[in-house]
Computed example of a mutant assay.
Amino acid sequence: MLNPYLFYNGNCEAAFKYYEKVLGGKIEFLLRADEGPADMKPQPGWEKKIMHARMSINGQTLMASDAPPGHFNKPQGFSVSLTIADLAEAEHKFKQLADGGAENMPFGKTFFSKGFGMCVDQFGTPWMVNCPLEGM
């Protein structure tokens, strides 16, 4: 099993609630920093940040947490890839993910897909949304 694990800069819960709404996911587990082991006390102001979260999206698992203070790095060198068979649904989800973020490659037909686009969402996570051609 291979699952992406994303780190956020204090906005993991907001991101997961957004993905739950936009991608039809279901948050299965959300552990706040102040709910962890007694010997792992969070820094002041960080008590309600997310220590670990798990979401199911169409049978796939996405996990994440808020990076500890001072340890967040802007995501780079990867994208979360979302494959959707229905073109209208793929374009709609792409637009929702890009809303408040940035489109790196507008959603459109390519030589390998009915529709493909790349964006960074409002939380800083890079996404690729693909509606593959038949047989791809």
Rank of each mutant, 00 (worst) to 15 (best):
L2I: 09
L2F: 08
P4A: 08
L6Q: 04
F7Q: 05
G10E: 11
N11C: 15
E13D: 14
E13N: 12
A14R: 10
A15F: 01
F16C: 14
K17R: 15
E20K: 12
K21N: 13
K21M: 09
K21D: 14
K21W: 03
L23F: 06
G24C: 08
K26A: 03
I27T: 13
F29G: 04
F29K: 13
L30D: 05
L31H: 13
A33S: 15
D39R: 05
K41I: 09
Q43G: 07
W46E: 14
E47W: 13
E47Q: 13
K48V: 05
I50D: 10
M51F: 15
M51V: 14
A53T: 08
S56D: 10
T61H: 00
T61M: 07
S65E: 01
A67C: 06
P68Y: 05
F72R: 03
N73P: 00
N73C: 01
Q76D: 06
Q76F: 10
Q76A: 10
Q76E: 10
Q76I: 00
S81V: 04
S81N: 13
S81I: 05
T83G: 01
I84A: 02
A85N: 08
D86N: 07
D86W: 02
L87G: 00
A90Q: 03
A90Y: 02
E91R: 15
H92S: 13
H92K: 15
K93Q: 14
K93S: 04
F94L: 05
F94W: 08
Q96F: 02
L97R: 08
A98P: 09
D99K: 14
A102Y: 05
A102L: 09
A102I: 12
P106W: 11
F107V: 10
F107P: 08
T110A: 14
G115M: 09
F116V: 01
F116H: 07
F116M: 06
G117E: 04
M118S: 12
Q122C: 10
F123S: 10
T125Q: 12
V129P: 01
V129K: 02
N130V: 06
N130H: 09
C131I: 01
C131W: 05
P132V: 08
E134I: 00
E134R: 00
E134L: 00
G135E: 00
M136K: 02
